[in-house]
Computed example of a mutant assay.
Amino acid sequence: MIRSMTGYGRGESVAEGYRAVAELKAVNHRYAEINVRMSRDLLAFEELVKKLIADKIRRGRIEVYITLERLSGNVPAIAVNQELAVELKATADKLAQELGVESDLTIAQLLQTEGVVTIREADTDPELVERVLADAVSEGVGNLLAMRTREGEQLSTYFLNRLAKLSDLADQVTERAPQVIEDYRERLKKRLQEWIDGQIEIDESRFLTEVALFAERANIDEELVRLKSHIGQFQATLTLADPVGRKLDFLVQEMNREVNTIGSKANDLVLSRLVVEAKSLLEQIREQVQNVE
């Protein structure tokens, strides 16, 4: 089953004081392009994140947003330089006594003094962080793939509907083609008769040769065979599990080539109308094929 290249997926993982969230947004792109956005302290895990995504997604531009937060159970360590605080308090009291004023240095002011209090982030466990990030990204990728698969099912239905119409048009062209030769034969014979005005007889041999030459130039049997073959290949490709966007794009180009050739040989209003309808369907298919992984 085909998959769309667009979609969104979110994953979250919580373990031992950490909470990681991964959000993935995918849009169309010819190749696979993965852009990861995370804080600088997590850059060491960027390649891991890209690999987890690249193993599952072959085409599309993927924007990844990752956040990691410490939960309440993982608080930073606070250290107080008590000796410095005592020294500052003693100095303030001595200065107040010498100036004959009351010392009003408070604990709050002491704690705000540079060097008295040091806050140190709790040690980070790289293996734990890697596991939490990997779990969040894997869940996000899974949800993204699920959305791309659902959209792929809708695209598949869309394609099959238009391929059925295209196949019907091809059948109409096949049915009409012999009549084009017969119409030409009748028109040519009528013109010749009007031209010679009954004065001489029509050379039947030369007349039939001219009709045969027209039939050869207007023959579209090979184009119809190839067109129907491409339609069948397209339908079969829709059932494959591998990324098939490029193959479908190629098949659309080939179908368009055959339809254009039929149009150039048409020389018939009915066939021309059918060709225009077929090209319109192929354009609709081509636009949506750009969304297939």
Rank of each mutant, 00 (worst) to 15 (best):
Q112W: 06
G140W: 02
Q154R: 12
L160Q: 12
G100T: 07
Q172K: 08
T157I: 10
A136P: 03
E121R: 06
D104A: 15
Q97V: 13
L155D: 08
Q109V: 07
A146Q: 14
V117Q: 01
L163D: 06
E153Q: 11
G142N: 07
I107M: 13
E102T: 15
R120W: 03
A108M: 08
T157N: 12
L163W: 02
S167N: 13
V137M: 01
K94L: 15
A170G: 03
T157P: 05
D104M: 15
V173Q: 00
V132K: 02
L111Q: 08
L163A: 02
L133C: 04
S167I: 04
D125P: 11
L95Y: 13
D168F: 08
L133S: 05
E151P: 08
D168E: 14
S138N: 13
L169G: 00
V137G: 03
R120F: 07
Q154V: 13
N161C: 01
T118S: 12
A134Q: 01
S138Y: 02
E127W: 05
E121Y: 01
T124W: 10
L163R: 03
T174P: 00
T124N: 11
G100Y: 05
Q172M: 05
E121C: 03
V132H: 02
L110A: 00
E153H: 09
G115S: 05
I119C: 04
E130L: 02
R131E: 15
F159E: 02
V101E: 09
L133Q: 06
E102R: 13
L166G: 01
D123E: 15
G152Y: 04
S156Y: 07
R131L: 13
E127S: 12
R120K: 14
E121M: 06
G142M: 01
V173G: 00
K94F: 12
L95M: 15
L155Q: 05
V117Y: 00
G152C: 05
K165A: 14
D125R: 09
A108E: 14
D168Y: 09
A146K: 13
K94M: 14
V173H: 00
A96K: 04
S138D: 13
V101I: 14
L95T: 15
T106Q: 08
V101K: 09
Q154D: 14
L155E: 07
G152L: 08
G140H: 04
G152P: 06
E175Q: 11
E130G: 10
T124H: 07
S138T: 15
L160R: 14
